[in-house]
């Protein structure tokens, strides 16, 4: 750009070779990360499907619908696990949905900034509590103090209800923080429009802010449910039925969930690792879990698209 004659030559706008090489290098690094993640996911799904399918081919079909889940004795009653999972998740949601959404609405719409600054980190600390701790909390506090009081002592020391409550507590922070983000993302202009029309805070919250945030809130609920379904440690500790369990619809009896059953297959003294039906059943449940979570996410997606108010 020294002389006037070559001032407007293309050369002055051309990408410098060193710059171009740097760009290429960065692109390679980032795409390698993407490819690696994809490859790992495919590998996981492949292993899951291969062994799940192997199990499904080999297992006598009558053993899939029986009195309970006793994999070491060749009884793989799938409904025991599914019902156990549903009960734990259901109870967990009974706790986590009202409390999580309540906290989110309070923090985003009602709390003074000072209160929020204190409360929000506390809730995030709750999210950091290891689930092992909550498992023991379930047997040492929730069961004797809450569940026993509720049903008057007909509950077992290890039962589905106590585990469900503990899983619920574990899920509160997820639902609270994701839905609070969604609520706070609703533009102030919408709240002003509502107040400007003479709405009170409650109407503004429930008729304007909440509907506008619904897609984020549904996402929070789906995340919460997925978390509850996937929770292993609390259930393994507090729900009883470690090696296996009878089919039972009573939440105050020991019960077996899909995840706890998988964990139990891994850590008994008679390790089943290697081959055999019991080992393969692990992958079968894993595959079912995978499908359930996938379907859940798809339903959530649908739901969101249907009710979304886009701002």
């Amino acid at each position: 750009m020294s002389s006037d004659t070559n001032r407007w030559e293309i050369g002055s706008l051309r990408l410098a070779p060193a710059r171009r090489r740097a760009d290429t290098r960065m692109r390679l690094i980032f795409s390698a990360a993407a490819v690696a993640t994809l490859a790992i996911s495919i590998l996981i799904i492949y292993t899951l499907v291969k062994d799940a399918w192997g199990f499904f081919i080999d297992v006598p079909k009558g053993d899939l619908w029986n009195i309970g889940w006793f994999p070491r004795r060749g009884i793989f009653d799938i409904k025991t696990l599914i019902l156990g999972t549903l009960m734990v998740t259901g109870i967990a949601m009974l706790i986590a949905v009202p409390l999580g959404l309540g906290v989110a609405i309070y923090l985003s719409e009602f709390a003074a900034p000072r209160v929020r600054r204190v409360l929000k980190p506390i809730i995030e600390v709750l999210a950091g509590i290891p689930s092992v701790v909550l498992g023991y909390f379930a047997i040492s506090f929730i069961n004797p103090n809450i569940i026993t009081a509720l049903v008057g002592g007909s509950n077992k020391a290890f039962n589905v209800a106590a585990a469900g409550v503990a899983v619920g507590i574990l899920t509160i922070p997820i639902i609270a923080s994701v839905s609070e983000d969604a609520l706070r993302a609703v533009p102030m202009a919408l709240r002003e429009a509502s107040y400007g029309l003479g709405a009170r805070r409650v109407s503004t919250t429930f008729r304007v802010v909440f509907p506008a945030a619904i897609s984020g809130i549904v996402a929070a609920l789906i995340l919460g449910i997925s978390r509850a379904i996937g929770e292993t440690m609390v259930v393994a500790i507090a729900a009883g039925a470690v090696g296996g369990g009878l089919f039972s619809t009573d939440p105050f009896q020991p019960g077996q969930t899909m995840t706890a059953a998988m964990a139990a297959l891994g850590f008994g003294s008679d390790q089943v690792a290697g081959s055999g039906l019991a080992f393969q059943s692990l992958f079968f449940i894993g595959f079912l879990l995978f499908v359930i979570t996938l379907v859940l996410n798809m339903i959530g997606d649908r739901l969101v698209r249907k009710v979304r108010e886009e701002y």
């Binding site: 002003e192 429009a193 304007v208 506008a212 701002y311």
Partner: peptide, 10 residues
């Protein structure tokens, strides 16, 4: 009140 930026509810 009518605001500077139109703010219809979604």
């Amino acid at each position: 009140m009518v605001f500077q930026k139109p703010n219809p509810f979604p």
